[in-house]
Each structure stands twice: as structure tokens, then as C-alpha cells.
Design a protein around this nucleic acid. Structure first.
Lengths: 219, 219
DNA sequence: ATCACACATATGTGATCACAGTACCCATCA
DNA sequence: TGATGGGTACTGTGATCACATATGTGTGAT
């Protein structure tokens, strides 16, 4: 059975099997639990989560409208393989939107938040050291969205989540292929340091640099 | 029965009753055909478009995930009333994203496109003169998205459409309340002039100014 | 006249079925 | 050995039903 994931639910959505399943799958997408090209079937997901086909059907079609899943030529629902061009587009959009919400979030980030960010960053570094891609992806997601949630932006945040939904599977794929070493030089420490010293500009630039670092993997 | 609207469909989506209905409703939302607070019922939409409840149900729930519709406290699906704060957020995000895609689109806009833009702008001005809000909204939508489509951005364009979905009903409401005169001073002519003279910066600034003009209505 | 209860209606949700495609596998034949 | 045929299983789609809940309305009693 599906339990409510840690992720925030968009605005008010009723507590139904469909929405629970949707959120569970969203989180798994952002954390890179799925592989590009993988076929996601309505009935299989339904069986996996112990519901009828209907909630699974709705949840999957929502993910399609969000661009997280796509239709294959034969109408099967699959995890998309982002072209290099499109992956760049996503990263470009991410840099644009995420530096913006970071700027909005800056004033609302507390000392407790900074401690939490440092704790998450340590876990991330541990995951990288162990070559644990899944834990890395999950930590990276938590790190960024802890910041972004502080912006209290009800408009930009859902857009960013859509970008992550599209970005997750391919990022996971790239990480797996290139190995954990390829992502070792993230800019999370610069982020927390800029926050500690209260430097908004350095903070936003560090976020931007962290995202841009993803582009390096493409060359 | 639903016919394929003029709007572009996101990536590849199969030609089903659900997707057709979804697109039809999307277009109506962007053009401001609905009123904030209005209740949109599954069965009523189904009857209106001559389908069973299922396609209507899916189309409406997709619009909810896109933020174009929301749930009332009693789980009814309604057209949201944007708070002033949130309306500002949407406009802010619009300015950010739409100036960006305009920049990307600039190089791909042909002389034929410019003529078409001028033609649409004349229709818009005619609509304003007649106080025809619906025709104004439709023209404004066509004007902007003719430009944005030239960016060929598969990532930013869907995000912008989501913003318009949220923005449409409230904009329609504001226009109706304030009268057509309140929107008389758009910056469309500056846009086409900048395009004619090949000035990218002026073009992007005119787009930004046109969007910012919407903020004036709030004060 | 006013309040309360009950019934009728309308809502979204979930389940199940039939249907039209597609893909894949295995047997059959050249 | 290879190609071709057919059949089986699986896919998403649409329709319909049962159910719980919410809303509104009218009727009854006080």
C-alpha cells in the first residue's frame, strides 16, 4: 500500500489512491529510480501498489502530462530518453528558475536549515564515496528542495519539480554510466558557506554553478 | 464532438478522446473562457462534448495537475481565483520565462511571421476598440505563442503554457471588471517594430514590458 | 415562523469489463 | 536452417456501475 511520501503535495489535493500513487511515483522519478526506455505499465504499477488499474492509470497519465513519462510509438508508456539537446535545455531552464527561487528563498533560510543542509551534504559525500548512486540522487534532491521550499513560491516550485521529473531518469543514467567520480565536485559546500556568511550573491552563484556542473557531464 | 484545436500538442500524444478534450479545454482556459470560482463538473463536461465521463474525468484531472483547475474544500473541481500575491508570482515567472524564449525565438522569426503578428495585433486593437474581451484574449494568446513557438524549445514552452493556464481565467476576470480601456496600452507595436528593425534587445524588452503592463492592473 | 430531519440530487473515486490494437514467441513449413 | 504464419498475452482506451460524501431542498414538527 502507498504511504504519503515526504514530498510536498501541490496546493490542495484530496487524499486519494490516485494522488498518493502519483506522489510516490513523482518522488521516485526525481530520485532517479527509473531507467530511460523502461516501460511503465498501468496494470503492473497497479499490482505493485496493490490498487486497481484506475489509480495507476490516472497517476501515470498525470506524469505524462508533466513530461516525466512519454508514449512510445506503440502507445506504451515509457521513461523518456532525453536527447543531449533536450537535456541541455532542461539544465538551462533549471539554472534560470532555480537561481531565481534561491534568491527568493535566501531571506527565509534559518541557521537550523543550514545545519540540515550540511548534514545532507555529508550524506551525499558519503554516498559518492561509496559509489551509491541512489543515495546520491536522493540526497541531492533533498538538498536542493530544502532550499527551494523556503522560497514559498507556489508558482515556480511546481515548474521546477516538473524539470526534475524530466531530469531525474537521465541524470541517474548518466551517473551510473560515468560512475560516482564524475559528480564528485558538486558545489554544495560553496552553497552552505555562502549561506553561513550571509552572502546572497555568492549563494545564488553557487546554486547556478552546481547546476551548470551537470552540463560538464555531457561533453 | 471535439476537433483538434489550433494549439500544439506536447510532444507525442495519441489522438484519443481524452487528449482532444484536454487540448480543447486548455485552449479555452488560456483564452479566458472560464470564470474564477466556476464549478467544472466531470459529467457536465462529458455531456457537453458528447463523450462518456472517462475522457472528461482524465482531461479535468490533468488540468488540475497543471494548476489550471483546483479542488474546492468539498472536492469539487473549480476554476481558481488567484490571490493578488499569486497573480504577481505568475506574472513575474512569465516575464522571466517569456523574455527568455523570446530571445531564443528571435533568430527564427521570419518576415512572414512579422506580417502575421501585425495582422493579429490589428485584430487585437479592433477587439479592444469594440470592448470584446474574448477576442482580445484570444488574439493576445495567438500573438505571444506565435513568437514563442519559434523558439523550438520543448522544455520552456510547456512551462509557459502552464503559466498561461493559471493566468487566463483571472486575466479575463480583471479585464471584464476594469473594461477594455485598461489594456489598451499593450506593447505589441513595439514588439513588431523591434522585430522589423532586427533589434533583439528591444524586442525582448518589449515582450517584458508587455507582460509587466499586466501588473499595473493590480495596483 | 423557525428549526430540524430526511430525502433527492450531484459530486468525485474506484473497480470492472469489453475492445482494438501491438508485440512477442513458438510452431510449422519451405 | 531460415522464414512465415498464427496465436497468446499484454498494452492503453472508453464505458458503465457501485459507493461514499456533500449539497440543497422541501417537509415536517415545535
Amino acid at each position: 500500500m502507498v504511504t504519503q511520501p515526504t514530498g510536498r503535495r501541490a496546493a490542495f489535493s484530496p487524499d486519494t489512491a490516485s494522488t498518493r500513487l502519483h506522489q510516490a511515483l513523482r518522488t521516485r522519478m526525481c530520485e532517479g529510480d527509473f531507467t530511460p526506455g523502461e516501460v511503465i505499465s498501468i496494470r503492473r504499477i497497479a499490482a505493485e501498489y496493490g490498487t486497481s488499474a484506475m489509480p495507476a492509470r490516472e497517476a501515470l497519465r498525470w506524469l505524462v502530462t508533466e513530461g516525466a513519462l512519454v508514449f512510445s510509438d506503440s502507445r506504451k508508456i515509457i521513461v523518456p530518453e532525453l536527447s543531449r539537446e533536450r537535456f541541455e535545455e532542461v539544465l538551462y531552464a533549471r539554472k534560470n528558475l532555480e537561481t531565481e527561487v534561491s534568491r527568493q528563498a535566501f531571506a527565509h533560510i534559518t541557521a537550523t536549515d543550514i545545519d540540515e543542509l550540511k548534514r545532507i551534504d555529508e550524506q551525499i559525500n558519503g554516498a559518492i564515496a561509496q559509489g551509491d548512486i541512489v543515495r546520491y540522487m536522493r540526497g541531492n534532491y533533498q538538498f536542493h528542495f530544502l532550499i527551494y521550499r523556503r522560497s514559498h513560491s507556489q508558482v515556480l516550485l511546481p515548474l521546477i519539480e516538473i524539470l526534475w521529473l524530466q531530469y531525474g531518469p537521465s541524470m541517474r543514467y548518466i551517473c551510473t554510466r560515468w560512475g560516482a567520480s564524475s559528480i564528485a565536485d558538486d558545489h554544495h559546500r560553496e552553497v552552505t558557506q555562502a549561506l553561513s556568511s550571509g552572502d546572497c550573491e555568492a549563494f545564488c552563484q553557487a546554486i547556478g554553478a552546481d547546476i551548470e556542473q551537470g552540463m560538464m557531464l555531457l561533453s
